[in-house]
């Protein structure tokens, strides 16, 4: 009976979020290297290397096209990693949640706090890529800053499913399935490297059900100045994924911890 109620959102989530940011602060240098290093590699390697042959894509330089897509995909991978490997570590071997549950905080606070934290890390990576894109001259003006809250939402939208995986996992190996079957296909198919319009029609319909497609539409519109025809729809899809996955994750984590 306890598992079927809707989760509450309370200030306790911020205490959990704060714990994580305090840990992150201790590992600031390697964390920053990760944030800048990997996307920089993609942008320079693929953007310049592949871009040399591709030239323009969808009416913009390939580097601009790629940078605006990588902002979204990097938010996805960052939030997914944190929501699986780090959350599982705190939930199972490290027993951090057991310790937190001995305080007035509740499972709902933990799940909400962790999702906020995953989104915060996604935000850091998004900002890092935005800075790199701006330095390389492929960010289109100040409206590109609107991508910052969007990246946070993208982070929330992938944090929830990742936490669902954590609550179902018994070992870290389980996460490979999710990466191979969910994260990597989205990375390849959802318009990060080429416009989804070039996909066969049958695949295109399916791709529009995936959140990363909507995330890429938003980031490309805001950062690279591509035409944004349905911003509300894209935002609604991301918010929908975030909310539904939060409710399910809270239910499953409760089932796992409150036995």
């Amino acid at each position: 009976m306890n598992t079927l109620r809707l989760p509450r959102i309370r200030p306790g989530a911020l205490y959990v979020w704060r714990r994580n940011i305090l840990v992150w602060r201790k590992l600031l240098i390697p964390a920053m290297l990760m944030n800048f290093g990997e996307p920089l590699l993609y942008l320079l390697g693929l953007g310049f290397g592949l871009g040399h042959f591709v030239g323009d894509m969808a009416g913009m330089p390939y580097l601009a096209f790629l940078a605006s897509g990588i902002i979204a995909s990097s938010a996805m991978t960052t939030a997914s990693f944190e929501g699986m490997y780090s959350v599982f570590t705190r939930m199972v071997p490290q027993k951090t949640y057991e310790a937190i549950l001995a305080t007035p905080l509740d499972v709902d606070d933990i799940v909400a706090g962790e999702m906020l934290w995953c989104a915060t890390k996604a935000l850091f990576s998004g900002i890092a890529i935005l800075v790199v894109a701006a330095v390389l001259g492929v960010a289109q003006g100040w409206q590109a800053l609107w991508v910052v809250p969007v990246v946070f939402l993208v982070g929330l939208c992938f944090a929830g499913p990742a936490m669902i995986m954590s609550s179902l996992a018994t070992t870290y190996d389980f996460f490979s399935y999710y990466f191979v079957l969910v994260v990597t296909p989205m990375f390849i198919l959802c318009g990060v490297f080429y416009p989804v319009e070039t996909l066969p029609e049958a695949v295109r319909g399916a791709v529009y059900l995936l959140p990363l497609t909507h995330a890429v539409h938003l980031t490309r519109g805001l950062v690279a100045g591509a035409e944004l025809t349905q911003p509300v729809l894209h935002l609604a899809v991301l918010a929908g994924y975030a909310l539904v996955s939060y409710v399910i994750a809270a239910m499953l984590v409760r089932r796992k911890l409150m036995v």
Binding site: R19, Q94, K95, T96, E98, A99, A102, T103, P104
Partner: peptide
Amino acid sequence: RARTGIIPQADNLDP
């Protein structure tokens, strides 16, 4: 829980 102190069976200190 706000008025209770809990010492679990296995230590779960934050490493």
